[in-house]
Amino acid sequence: MLRLTIWPRIKWRLRYFAGSARRTVVQAARLSVGVPDYDTYVRHLREHHPERQVPSYAEFYRERTEARYRGGGGRCC
């Protein structure tokens, strides 16, 4: 009885944890090479600039790749 009630919860927790860990790793990896989260950007555009056209992921990716090496910070030795 106990097993039946607790096990689904643990499974759910684990799945949730694995999912969020995966998202974190993917986001960190993308950001490390200069590509921020696309979904966040789209959400930002929809909320604050509904008049602007939402770029496709490919367009977004190209623009960010150009922006990464346009002067500024750089990386360490």
């Binding site: 986001q27 960190a28 490390s32 989260d37 950007y41 959400r43 930002h44 555009l45 360490c76």
Partner: peptide, 27 residues
Amino acid sequence: HNDGLDYVPTDKWVVFGHHFAAIAGAG
């Protein structure tokens, strides 16, 4: 200054990963 691109509130682990990747090098 949230603009969804350069200024974005980001999960601290993601920022940590990005920051470490930027400071760690051959030095």
